[in-house]
Design a binder for these strands. Structure first.
Lengths: 246, 246
DNA sequence: CGGTTTTTTGAAAGGGCTCAAGATCCGTGG
DNA sequence: CCACGGATCTTGAGCCCTTTCAAAAAACCG
């Protein structure tokens, strides 16, 4: 039933509902152009006028802001198939910087590309709305981990979330992946110092929870990690029962 | 141009766009029923099947989860005019408990009430989508404060956000309001102990930033507070330029 | 290879937490 | 209108997790 594609976006959205040909065609517009980035490139700056959104075609990207104190906070991570900026359509200026965590490719498309979807496909609109909602549920979980858990819990939660998100587009995902993040970046994501991330990672290794080999992370005891941070995979399945038929 | 109403929801949404008669009629369905709660009442529990969403007619409500450690995290605060549960439509079960912070009234409506909007009004759909997006931007700000700021910064940010949200429906809002939250609840919202909230509040008072008289909070030096936590009011204005015409 | 980025480790300081206990406030019932 | 009991606020003292500051080792990249 599903549409054949080499588009990460269609692959991701198709995971949730069967996309009609017309829907796939609408989405294809989003990936008409593309732009390559290398690690550490800045895609756009906070306060830049929001002219377009992006589809991530490949690579890891992240959104972050700097605080007056010099601290940095990573707000979001973006992987292949993700849409960047969907929640910023309400703003006239970007709310955070975006940078490339690895080399990769983005597909920019005009902000009002969404208008076309909203007027032509209630069903696809409902899906975009749901992706947005899902993002919020996941951010809630993150807030909980960051506000209320210690370093081990925060890292466990981050890793589980990253794996869960990858499993949407790669259902056969194993227990190992290459983390395209320095320990400093990890720290800025969960509200810890890079230094403390280092010590905590070491501790988690000694406890047999994970193994780090260079930038390759292996989850050795996923059940224990899930228990530790009461992780719940919000990403894999969503309720589409209320969606408009068309 | 705007529709006459005694509905908080219409008042809030009408702040952002001119609502057509038909849109107001659609929204009216959301407030067909209502239910009263008194302080400390539980509205629904985590993992309850999600059968309906709510419009807050009056009072303060909050969504929270408990951690295995016994800690509590408040995920969201809800005020008059807010919609509760819009991001949970993707879930089959509730992601957090909801309780009444003060006495108040909610209007429950069926989850698929949204379907009607999605199929009949692209413009109103875009607005609901935007409210969702706005919520995310605000949650991002919150995450930043909680992950990266000290106690004073976190409280300053929380208070400014609460005031900003109230100003949407009450443009004439002064510098004083009754906080319908115990210090414990405040702490669970920003990731601090109730005890430390107490000490920090005292400190902020001594520094002339705020004044607390019972549960009444006055912002004495809003500019200083905004600087302290680099606060930006995301709530007052949104970009509607890309909205479908109808 | 040489320079930059990242990881690793140590020692000391600090902000917020825990535990404990007394004071106050507030709603409810008599 | 007052008394009672639970909820909330306050304050003290000591502890602990995480941060800071510093510096060396390792890994990475062109």
């Amino acid at each position: 039933m599903s549409v054949k594609t080499n588009s990460c976006l269609v692959a991701k959205l198709g995971h949730f509902i069967d996309l009609h040909e017309t829907d796939a065609a609408l989405l294809a517009h989003f990936e008409a152009q593309q732009q390559d980035y290398k690690k550490r490139d800045i895609v756009r700056r906070e306060n830049d006028p929001i002219e377009n959104l992006f589809v991530v075609k490949s690579g890891w990207f992240y959104g972050y802001t700097m605080l007056p104190s010099g601290k940095r906070q990573v707000h979001r991570l973006f992987f292949a198939g993700d849409l960047i900026g969907t929640h910023e359509v309400v703003c006239e200026k970007a709310t955070y910087d975006i940078a490339a965590a690895s080399s990769g490719t983005l597909c920019p498309f005009a902000k009002n590309g969404l208008t076309t979807v909203f007027t032509n496909s209630p069903r696809l609109t409902a899906l975009l709305y749901s992706i947005e909602a899902l993002e919020q549920v996941a951010q809630d979980d993150r807030l909980r981990a960051i506000a209320r858990m210690d370093a081990v819990g925060r890292l466990a939660h981050l890793f589980l979330q990253i794996f869960a998100r990858h499993r949407i587009t790669h259902s056969d995902f194993g227990p190992t992946m290459k983390l395209e993040m320095s320990q400093e970046l990890i720290g800025d994501t969960v509200g810890l110092t890079g230094i403390h991330v280092n010590r905590t990672l070491k501790q988690m290794g000694e406890e047999g929870m994970i193994r780090m080999e260079g930038s390759h992370l292996t989850l050795l005891d996923k059940p224990a990690m899930e228990r530790l941070c009461s992780f719940d995979d919000r990403h894999y399945k969503i309720d589409t029962s209320w969606f408009p038929a068309k």
